[in-house]
Computed example of a mutant assay.
Amino acid sequence: MGGRGSASGKKAHLPNYKNAVIDTHGKFKNYLLNPTKSAGKADFFNSIGYNMRNYKTFERDIRSGLKNNPAIVYKTNKYGHTAYSVDMELGINKKKNVITGWQIDNGEKKPRFITAYPKKKGGK
């Protein structure tokens, strides 16, 4: 996700980040950390210490990253859903930069976890 920063130019947290919704079974165990569903992402997250057995640690670390890193507004789509990205350093046995994607649906207040992937050198 790229982005254009907040309107005020200040670095701000993901709105309502303390109440962020993360589907740990669907997104974590059944996709990001599951080598049979997403081999590339699972290999990456496994290489920094996360796997299907310690997905709760992965969730805890992402929530901590929300607290400690600013969000960037990515876009608002035609339905009024606003997408954000939050870059953070994650890892148990070694740290890597990761981009997390979030969405706040039109009329909702809680951000919803969409994805996470390694940040490539030099940006996205």
Rank of each mutant, 00 (worst) to 15 (best):
K56R: 13
G9H: 07
N34S: 13
N69C: 13
I62Y: 01
T57K: 11
N19H: 04
E59W: 03
E108A: 09
Y74P: 00
A12I: 11
L32Y: 01
G49K: 08
R112S: 08
S38G: 07
G123R: 13
N54H: 07
G107K: 02
N77L: 07
G122S: 05
G5C: 07
A116H: 05
Y55S: 11
G2N: 11
I22V: 14
G65S: 05
K10N: 15
K119A: 12
S38R: 06
M88D: 07
W102E: 01
W102T: 03
T36N: 14
A116P: 06
T36S: 15
Y117P: 01
K120A: 15
N97Y: 04
I104G: 03
D87T: 06
L90V: 08
S8I: 02
N77W: 07
G2S: 12
M88Q: 14
P70M: 06
H13Y: 11
K120E: 13
E89G: 00
I62D: 00
R60L: 08
K124E: 07
T82S: 15
K119V: 05
G91K: 04
P111K: 01
F28C: 03
Y74K: 12
F113T: 05
E108Y: 09
N46V: 03
Y117K: 02
D43C: 08
M88W: 10
A116T: 06
P35M: 05
I48V: 15
H81W: 15
N51P: 10
K75M: 14
E108R: 12
W102M: 06
P70R: 12
S64D: 14
Y17W: 15
N106R: 12
Y79F: 14
I104R: 03
T100I: 02
T115G: 05
S6N: 15
N69E: 12
N46I: 01
N51Y: 10
V98N: 05
D61E: 13
M1V: 11
I22D: 01
S38F: 07
I72E: 12
M1K: 05
I99K: 06
S8T: 15
Y17N: 03
D87E: 07
M52W: 00
G9T: 09
G122P: 04
Y117T: 04
N106A: 15
V98R: 05
F44R: 12
K29I: 08
N34P: 09
Y17G: 02
A39V: 13
Y79Q: 15
E59T: 06
D87Y: 05
T115C: 05
G80F: 12
T57H: 03
K11T: 13
G80T: 12
N34D: 15
N19L: 02
Y79W: 10
Y55P: 03
N19V: 00
K11Q: 15
E89N: 04
N93L: 04
K121R: 13
R4I: 11
K121L: 09
F28M: 04
G107I: 04
K18S: 12
G26M: 02
E59A: 07
A12D: 02
N46F: 10
R112T: 08
N93E: 09
N34M: 07
L14P: 05
N68M: 09
N106H: 14
D61K: 01
T115H: 06
G101W: 00
